[in-house]
């Protein structure tokens, strides 16, 4: 962040600009997350007050205090932990498989025109199928337990990663690759020193959208018969008429999703400080 701010500063004006940079950084670090919290906090407090004042009984949409109480109870009994772990494990394994497959095939298709002509039409056709449509087949093939769930998640993660990697490699600037060749790089050295760093920014984007789809598909998978997992908590809350449990599970999803995404961003940021892009100025990470 501070880096992006320094960008436009030329050496002769550096001394005059520095205090302002420091001030902006301090401002950014504290006020930006707070600003983002303002809207949900106002809504939550408003709803809490509305229920307390008797404008609504809050049965279908429980007030924040009830939701927090439910979360607390779930956490106390160990249920929350058990369900979260089950879901996170499914996402992690499915994401891992999807990323490995998507990266390998995407890199092959991006690097070699022959592989692309061979594989890409089939994969694009498969991509056109809504992934949930595979569920019955996966259940027939792999049973109703973990294998079919993880496979569904892996399929969901695979496509954005595959497309992202292929597109990124194909769009690496020919002129930059030529610099590598002029320094007598080829094969693995060219990949390591030129192609990999060049595609890293798009790869991170691909991983993030893949992970997002992973969270989406884990819910679908857990809806279709699971005895644990946050998706199970959702269904259970619906069947037993416990909206507070549903909202508690949703909030847990949101927190876990945000943490996972934040982990990718935090891991990648040190490698992407060189980026010269428009969005770098306003980004919290």
């Amino acid at each position: 962040m501070s880096f992006a701010l320094m960008t436009g500063v030329t050496s002769d004006s550096e001394t005059t600009a520095r205090p302002q940079v420091a001030r902006t950084r301090r401002f950014g670090r504290w006020s930006r997350p707070l600003l983002g919290l303002l809207v949900p906090l106002v809504l939550a407090v408003g709803w809490e007050l509305a229920v307390r004042a008797g404008f609504s009984n809050g049965r279908l949409m429980p007030p924040p205090s009830v939701i927090l109480q439910t979360l607390y109870d779930l956490a106390q009994s160990g249920e929350l932990w058990r369900h979260s772990v089950a879901t996170v494990l499914r996402v992690a394994v499915g994401f891992g498989i999807g990323v490995v497959a998507g990266t390998l095939l995407g890199a092959l298709a991006g690097y070699s025109a022959l592989t692309r002509r061979l594989l890409d039409p089939t994969l694009q056709a498969l991509r056109a199928i809504p992934s949930i449509a595979w569920v019955p087949l996966f259940i027939l093939w792999l049973g109703i337990f973990e294998a079919s769930k993880v496979t569904l998640i892996a399929v969901g993660v695979f496509f954005p990663v595959y497309l992202g990697v292929m597109g990124a490699i194909m769009s690496v600037d020919r002129k930059i690759v030529e610099v590598g060749r002029a320094f007598r790089l080829s094969g693995f050295a060219l990949v390591r020193r030129i192609l990999l760093p060049a595609v890293l920014p798009s790869y991170i984007v691909a991983l993030r959208s893949g992970l997002g789809l992973g969270w989406m598909f884990v819910v679908a998978a857990e809806f279709l018969g699971a005895s644990e997992g946050l998706g199970y908590l959702l269904i259970d809350g619906q069947q037993l008429g416990k909206p507070a449990q549903i909202v508690a599970a949703i909030i847990t999803f949101a927190i876990l999703g945000k943490i996972a995404d934040g982990l990718i961003v935090a891991t990648a940021t040190p490698f992407l400080r060189w980026e010269d892009r428009f969005g770098a100025r306003g980004e919290p990470a």
Binding site: K175, I176, E178, V179, I194, P197, A198, L200, F271, W274, E275, D276
Partner: peptide, 8 residues
């Protein structure tokens, strides 16, 4: 063009 590698 300079063709510097932007990540270095």
């Amino acid at each position: 063009e300079p063709r510097l590698l932007p990540w270095l």
